[in-house]
Amino acid sequence: MNLRCFTYIILLLTLFACELERDLDIPLPTGEKYYTLEAYLVHNEPYQTLLFRSNTMQGPVVFDLVWNASVKIINNTDTIRLSNIIQTDNTNNYIYNYYNDKLVDRNTAGYELSIITKTSDTLSAFSLSVPEVEIDSFRVMNNLLSVFTNNTNLPGSNYYMIRYYTYPLGENVHQQKVFDYSEKPEGLVQIDFPLSSDSIDSLYVNLYRINQTAFNYHISIEKAYAANHDPFTIPGPIQGNIKNGFGIFTCCSLDTCMIYLP
């Protein structure tokens, strides 16, 4: 038989035999449902938090909001009780299920969180306040967003988060990333962030100053996510600051800007 013909037959047999993926009938690891909280206390914005529970590998996947809990945030002089009300942030479509319209005071040194759920489970956390942040200038060049701001001389306060929203053809695209500038000197620093698309009409940029706890939290969730698909990232636990639960309770300051691209 012609060798080439024979080889092609074998190749085709090989190719048609390929079955790359299939469902697997295995018992999945068991785990508990954990309370999870996200609370960013932004200066001069209302107190708002999101309290929900995680999913296990068994059972249906739901976004399991926790209702009727007693949520208190305590500063030096005041106790703020948050009501169980669904609130939506129209800028980013975030939702919160505990809210108080009182504004976060920038001059408070720190905040304590205390939660007692309907089933008498307790969660608590503490966060120090951070200095104000201000966008000095910005630029977009070669599909790279550069934001300039000033580092402070306070230890532990030179962590940043950039969150931007783009509006190409009316579609809202949201990206965020945290940055550690704690080893940079006081003064002007440049924070670079690559844009996800080169067909951007306009850009709404949020620059947050966050503390180290929040920075570590974001890094750990990025890594946990990456470990699911990136072979070079080792799975690790999510590092939050919520006692008896997951998530983050943190103070932050915010400055924003709108960029229209030619």
């Binding site: 785990g31 954990y34 995680s54 296990t56 590998m57 946990a224 997951f246």
Partner: peptide, 27 residues
């Protein structure tokens, strides 16, 4: 290493679920 659960984190960069890992080499 397998996650024992996962969470949705609305205030993150990703709308997909984030795995919760408890122990290394658990499966």
């Amino acid at each position: 290493t397998m996650p024992t659960g996962f969470i949705f984190i609305p205030h993150s960069a990703n709308s997909n679920p984030y795995p919760l890992y408890s122990e290394r080499n658990n499966f």
